[in-house]
Design a protein around this nucleic acid. Structure first.
Lengths: 123, 123, 123, 123
DNA sequence: GTGGTCTAGACCACT
DNA sequence: GTGGTCTAGACCACA
């Protein structure tokens, strides 16, 4: 589990942690019931505060990707891959819907939009 | 000029104002040198503080879309088409950048993203 | 007397008027005791408020370049050209003194300074 | 970091703060990532309001000389030498622009101006 | 009337 | 503790 923190980023540290853990779990790198590093250990490794890591773990528990068990630790939740994927896609569609409104009111065509995305992925 | 404020939104009020004014100006709805509602009037209409509106106007002055003149008012700046387009694209890229972070951390590929967009435009 | 106002300039209108009147008087274009246009006439010609012109005239009276006589009008003061010039140069030296402090603390050499000035006058 | 405020000056307090911080940073006195005094501390030390200091910090963030990070503090940004120099020259040009208006309206020629500068540097 | 500056103080988000 | 947002209200400069 290799998590990188950018101390100067505008994105809150707890969110950086969440994003990377989410990516790792969704990529299938960790099995269900895998025990996450303890909050203290993770905080020490990343060089951030304990509260910050706790916030990240808590958020992921609410999200359903992690499960916290009193006195034992935090574990990777059992996930139905298809169902999870569908959730992500639904979230994506909501974001895309907002994006389309922006493009429509800004005179940006579908062509230009896709072109920008392609450029972005080529960097 | 119809601006709506969502007091419960996560996005700061001044940013909501900025986004909507920007949209209105870039859509060409307002002519160059159009006099914006005075800070006090706008604040009263929106039911927000004077400083909040001022902050929004200030930011847009820095952005180059408005010009503020002491004792006279705040006016729509003259913008050439190319510069206008560039502003829009810059905004688009900021949004796409956030979108990419979401996709990357959600195990959604470039392929899937473009596919979703294409579907959306076909509806 | 040809005075131009830039309504969109950041410089206050009354100051624009002052600068141009000062220039005209110092250039010797107007004789001593020349009667300036009335405040109302000047305001009408320039398309600005009466108060704005009054402010400009008042300031120039305090500066000693104009003399206001109750019920008669505003006139060009008698000026000792040499003395006036010396006053301007003294003011210039004060400004240059500040400028030098800025250059010294910003690692800008005399060479660079004069070069920038030359460039500026060539535009 | 020794900043002096002149409460009676015509230049706004936040601008006085900005000018002095800019000078300090551009002079190389502070290293990249140096943590600036907190807004509250600086405000208390200078005897001004919190918002005044915040305004100064905000402006310098927009200028690219500082970076503000929620919950952590405000830091000196990393600046490359060329960009630094360009900032200084831009500031110089703004000052020279004002100086030129003064000279033009005071019947002082480019020759006289440069002569005065040369004299000043010879003292 | 307009915008520009400044204050004191409150509440929230992040570390 | 840090910065970020927002308010209410005051005073000044400008037109």
């Amino acid at each position: 589990m290799n998590i990188m923190i950018d101390q100067l980023s505008q994105t809150p540290i707890y969110e950086q942690i969440e994003n990377q853990i989410r990516q790792i779990i969704l990529s299938g790198e960790l099995e269900t019931n895998y025990m996450m590093p303890s909050i203290r250990k993770m905080a020490k490794e990343l060089g951030v505060g304990i509260i910050t890591v706790k916030r990240a773990y808590d958020d992921m528990c609410n999200e359903g990707l992690l499960v916290s068990i009193q006195g034992r630790g935090v574990f990777v939740a059992s996930i139905d891959a298809d169902k999870e994927k569908e959730i992500r896609l639904t979230q994506l569609r909501e974001r895309l819907s907002e994006l389309k409104v922006f493009c429509d009111t800004s005179d940006i065509s579908k062509q230009e939009l896709i072109e920008e995305i392609t450029d972005m992925y080529n960097d």
